[in-house]
């Protein structure tokens, strides 16, 4: 319990330091926030445009305009949290390995993974999470106004849990990928790779296996399978988004249960990869 409080204290210090740092380059912070916001607004504009031409994203999928906006809000919220807390640190972790500065983290009387993962918080990315929440509330309100909203208390309670599980899945993937720099020497394409993998998580899983008339069936099922069971990024956003956007009876409960297992397994596996990476770490020079 005592150590738990200590970790909390260290985290608070990290958060405070990052904020001080961000605030010393205020113009930069503002511009970064503006670009984060404009990126979201542009995406929203694109989706708005699509829904000018159609009422649902795919025949009979249930993803109407505001249902899909809930999905997009969830994507924004989860990726905002991941980018704010872990993106910079994961990149920095690769750098620490390459330069040998990881030594300093290893020497400290704390869990190395904790130290490496949370050292710096990118406060401007949190604006993305904030917009996600706003968009979520607005979409729910619009759905309610249209009389299409049916939420149970259980769904509302499960939503934040599954958002966190999505964050955990993304985090595991990210830290495991960063840890591979121990073997590769350098991992500069982390961000690029990240972008290409998460691109599969940005749309409802139904698009991969729609009804007849859509692209190659085997490819769709293959992708859906791989990104559900092997790299579970499809679960990360789909489960919480569906929890909020669709009625209780339309939930895929098997996948909902599976998501918990997938989260636990991802975290466990990334921890193993991290430990393995540390044991293969051979500092750099002296």
């Amino acid at each position: 319990m005592k150590s738990f409080a200590r970790y909390g204290q260290v985290f608070a210090t990290f958060a405070r330091n990052s904020l001080v740092r961000d605030m010393s380059f205020r113009a930069n912070f503002i511009i970064e926030t503006i670009s984060v916001v404009s990126w979201i607004v542009m995406n929203l504009g694109f989706y708005e445009l699509i829904f000018q031409y159609t009422d649902t994203l795919g025949y009979n999928t249930g993803w109407g305009k505001y249902q899909f906006f809930i999905f997009f809000a969830t994507t924004t919220l989860i990726s905002g949290i991941v980018e704010a807390f872990f993106m910079y640190n994961a990149e920095e972790f690769s750098e620490l390995i390459r330069t040998g500065n990881l030594d300093f983290a290893l020497l400290k009387p704390m869990d190395t993974q904790f130290l490496v993962s949370l050292q710096r918080i990118d406060w401007s990315s949190l604006s993305s999470a904030a917009i996600g929440v706003i968009l979520l509330v607005v979409s729910l309100w619009r759905l309610d106004a249209a009389g299409e909203l049916s939420l149970t208390l259980l769904q509302v309670a499960l939503y934040p849990i599954y958002v966190l599980s999505g964050v955990a899945i993304f985090y595991s993937l990210m830290i495991a990928m960063a840890a591979t720099s121990v073997w590769l020497g350098r991992n500069q394409s982390l961000q690029q790779f990240w972008f290409y993998i998460t691109i599969f998580a940005r749309y409802p899983e139904e698009i991969y296996t729609g009804p007849a008339g859509t692209p190659k069936k085997w490819l769709g099922w293959g992708l859906r399978g791989v990104f559900t069971f092997i790299i579970p990024v499809l679960v990360a956003v789909n489960v919480p988004a569906r929890m909020m956007a669709m009625p209780f009876s339309d939930q895929h409960w098997k996948i909902v249960l599976f998501a918990i297992a997938a989260t636990a397994f991802s975290l466990w596996l990334s921890r193993q990869v991290f430990k393995m990476a540390l044991s293969s770490y051979r500092s750099a020079s002296s």
Partner: peptide, 9 residues
């Protein structure tokens, strides 16, 4: 896949 799905509706 996205546009394939859109064009089913």
């Amino acid at each position: 896949f996205l546009w394939g799905s859109i064009f089913t509706a």
